[in-house]
Structures are given as C-alpha cells and as structure tokens.
C-alpha cells in the first residue's frame, strides 16, 4: 500500500514568473554555464561537479546559483532554443549571471525561501513551482 506523505509548501520571491512542475534535481554546488554545461543536451560537464554527466532538461533545478564565465546566460538561453532547458530554477544566491540567465531561459524562477531548500527538497521529489504566487509545493517520494 502506498503511504501518502503530505506535501510541504515553501514560500519565496519571484525572479521570473510562471508555473511549472516536475522532478527535482538538487545540488549544493554552483553551476558554470559556458564550459560547465552542454547546451545541446542539458547535461553538466564540469569535471569535478557532483552532477557531472546528469541532465537538467525538463527538471526542477535546485542549486545555489551561477559561477564562472559570463557566457552563463547565453548558454542557458541556448538550452531553451534547443528544448533542453530546466523546467524551473530554484536558487539561493542572487547574482547577475543567474538573474539574466533565468530571464532569458524564460522558465519560472524563485529565490529567498523561508526554509532551507536543500534540506526540504531531495532529488526525485515531485515539485510544483508557482512563481507568481511565490510558492513551491514539494511532494516527497
């Protein structure tokens, strides 16, 4: 018999509006755009990154934020044009790279949460992001 776990609701600040749901992909390591991802398949390529080889395409990407080259926005922009963008971005460290990247990737994005997103959300959880309402609903698996 399946045990139903009650969903958790987090609130945060809208960065880019919109609604998305999907499977969570969580990392506590920042991500490089240019040189850190393959924009053709949405995978992480940085040698020493804990997600190396994994794809964020269609996932709710939960990560601290951006690092590295200023090509960050252009590379995430290209993931949108190549249909391999994440479904949403939830992050904790606001920078110009992540803000512009989220804007041009045109996916719901949020930051400044009322709880620790890395503790609350685990990879594989089903997550509903309503950026306009400022809420993230987590259905643990």
């Amino acid at each position: 018999m399946k045990v139903m776990t009650s969903p958790l609701i987090l609130t945060g600040r809208k960065v880019v509006g919109g609604y998305a749901e999907g499977e969570a992909l969580v990392t506590t390591q920042t991500i490089s755009g240019w040189g850190g991802i393959n924009e053709r398949d949405g995978s992480i390529i940085e040698r020493r990154h804990e997600l190396v080889g994994q794809s964020f395409a269609g996932k709710i990407l939960i990560f601290p934020g951006a690092k590295g080259s200023s090509g960050w926005s252009a590379f995430f922009h290209m993931t949108r044009l190549n249909d391999v963008a994440p479904a949403a971005m939830l992050f904790t460290r606001m920078t110009t790279k992540i803000a512009l990247g989220a804007v041009v990737t045109r996916v719901p994005a949020m930051t400044a949460f009322d709880a620790d997103i890395y503790q609350t959300i685990k990879t594989g959880d089903h997550v509903v992001v309503d950026a306009d309402a400022g809420t993230v609903t987590v259905h643990p698996t």
Binding site: S73, H77, T96
Partner: peptide
C-alpha cells in the same frame, strides 16, 4: 561593473 551577459 557586474558580470553582464550577451543579452544585457
């Protein structure tokens, strides 16, 4: 300056 991008 901040780190700007291709679009900004």
């Amino acid at each position: 300056t901040n780190v700007e991008g291709k679009e900004s």
